[in-house]
Design a binder for these strands. Sequence first.
DNA 1: TTGTATGCGTTATCAC
DNA 2: GTGATAACGCATACAA
Lengths: 330, 330
Amino acid sequence: MSTIDEVAFLAKVSVATVSRVINNNTNVSPETKERVLNAIARLKYQPNAMGALLRKEHTGMILILLHSVDNPFFSPIVQGIEYFAQSNGMNVLICTTYGDKNRENHYLDLLKSHFVDGLLLITNTLTCEELNELNRNYPVVQVVEYLPDCDASYFSIDFYQAAFSLVERLIEKGHHDIAFIHAGLADIVSTKKKYQAYCDALKKHNLEPIIEDISEHAFGYESGRTMTRELLKEHPSITAFFATSDLMACGILDELRDQGFKVPQDKSIISFDNTIFSTLVQPNLTSVDVNGFQLGYQSLEYLKKRINDKKFTDKLEVFLPYVIHERESS
Amino acid sequence: MSTIDEVAFLAKVSVATVSRVINNNTNVSPETKERVLNAIARLKYQPNAMGALLRKEHTGMILILLHSVDNPFFSPIVQGIEYFAQSNGMNVLICTTYGDKNRENHYLDLLKSHFVDGLLLITNTLTCEELNELNRNYPVVQVVEYLPDCDASYFSIDFYQAAFSLVERLIEKGHHDIAFIHAGLADIVSTKKKYQAYCDALKKHNLEPIIEDISEHAFGYESGRTMTRELLKEHPSITAFFATSDLMACGILDELRDQGFKVPQDKSIISFDNTIFSTLVQPNLTSVDVNGFQLGYQSLEYLKKRINDKKFTDKLEVFLPYVIHERESS
DNA sequence: TTGTATGCGTTATCAC
DNA sequence: GTGATAACGCATACAA
C-alpha cells in the first residue's frame, strides 16, 4: 500500500503535482505527467479514499434505505436511482432495514457522520418528527411511500386517483361486491390512499365496502390467501378483489382456484405494482405500473440538487404518471 | 457541523478525552464523561467518519457485487450476508453491475481505494487473471458462482451432484427424452456443471441429450418459452425439461400450457433456485434450494477472517448442502 | 509549471 | 485520569 509521497519521491516531483495528475488537473507538463503516471504504475499506487474525502465536501455516496431487496417492486426504482448515479459519478449504498428501527438508525449514522451525502427513503419506520429533524440537517427525499404532512420532499404517484379509477372500472363492469385486500402495514400512505379511494368510489355508486381486519396476517402471498378465505366465508357474494400488491393478488388467485372459482369468469382481481408476478401467473393480472424507474431517477436528480445547494430546500411533492395495465384477471 | 475541537472546548477538556468518551474508552472519570456527553448533546456533535477512518485500518464496509437486485435468487444470499454483518458491526454495500465491466471496475475502485475492506463476488465479469490479481491484494470471496481454477476462495454447492441426482430421478420415473434448458450465459460454472451432470446421467443410462443453442435468446422467462417452442418443434418426443432456473421453468410451463400440454401428466419440469416463483405457479415446481442464506453468511464469516488476518490466505473451496424440493411439476 | 506548507477531523502515543 | 501532539493521506492556497 503505497502513498502519494512515495509516488512523488519516485517521480522526483512534489505531492502536489502527483495530486494534480491524479485529479486530471491542468497545469502539468506532459513530461512530468508521464513521469508521475509511470511512478504510479510502478508502485501500483491507489489513492486512499479516506484521505481525499476528508478534504472534500462530499463523498459522492448516496444511501438508499429500503425494507428488503426481495420485493421486485423496488427493483425498477433502484435501477432508476442507479442509472442516474452512474451517469453522474455517484455511488449508491443500498441498505435494508427489514423494518427494524435499530438497523435503520445504524444506517442513518452513515448520513450523520457524513459517510454519505444524502438519503433516499424508499421505506422507513421514522416518525414525522424524526424525519423533519433529519430533513432539516441533511438532504433527504422520500420515494413512493411518504409521510404526508412532513417537511421532507417526495416523489410518488397519485395512488388515490389510480385506485379510484380502477374500482370504477370494476363497477362499470357490473361488480357490486368488491373486497379490499391490503397488506398488514396499513399505515403506509399508499395503502391509506388506495383504501380511501376504494371507499369513495363505492360510496359514489352506493355500494358497501368489504374489508377484513388483518392485523395478525403476514404480508404478501400468504396474507392474500388467508384474507380471501376469511372474506369468502362471510361474503360469498364477492365478485371482485382489489389487492394492494401483485403478490397478494397471487395469493387471492391461488385461493380462488383452490375453492373452484375461475378468474375472471367467477371472480375478478385488480392489483398494484405490475411486477413480474402479474404476468407470471395465469390469468395475467390487471395491475397499476407506478413507473419505478422514473421515480427513482428523478428522486436522485432532485436529491443531487439539494446536496449541491444547501439553500435549495423547497419541499417538493411530485406525482408522476402511472399506467394501468388491464389484463385477463378483470 | 461541529467538530471534536468545539466539543473539547465547550467541555473544557482536550480532544483526546472527547475521543475517549466517544469510543467508550476506559480511563475517563464519570464527571468528565458527563461533561463531555453534555457538550456533545448541546452541539449535536456527530463524529466525522472520514476523519476517524483515516486513522483506522478498516472501514467496516463490505462490497457485494452482483448482477442486479431483481433476481429473487440473490435475496437469501444477501440476507445471510447482512445478518452476519449486522451481528459483527459491519456495513454492506450492495452494488449492481448489470454485467457491465465499466460499472464493475468503478465499484472495484472502492476496494482498491480502501473505501471497503473486502469483496463478496456474487456475479462477476472478471477473467481468472484479473480475479487472481485482485485476490492477491485484497480480501475476496466468491459466492455461488466461481471461477474453478482461480486462486480466490468460494462458497457454493455441488451443482454437479444436485443436477445428476435430479436427472436420474427423472430417468427412474421412465423419462427418456429429457431436454436441457439453460440461460444464455452458458459459461458460468453452475450452468456448466449442471450441463455436464445432465449429459453424464443420460450417458450412464444410454440416453441422448437434447439441447438448444441459445446464443441469441434473452435470459429468463422469455428465454424458457422460446427454447421450449424451438425444441418441441424438432423433438416432439420430449417428456421432461431440465431448467437451470425457476424463472426459465416458468417460461417452459407457460409455453407448454399454451401448446395444450399438461404438467406433469404430459411433460415434467425440474429446475433450480427454489425461489418464490417455484411455488407461485401451478403446478408448483420441483426445484433445488441452494440455501443462499448460509452461503452468504459463511462467505462473509470467512471474508472477515481474511480481513483481520492478512496472513490467512488459504484458498477455501466450500460446498454447502443443498435440498431438492420435489413438487408437482415432476 | 511546480513546490511548500497547511488543514481536513480524528485517533493514538506519549508524557504528566 | 488527562493533555499535548504527532500522525493518517490527500488537496489546495499561496509562493516561487
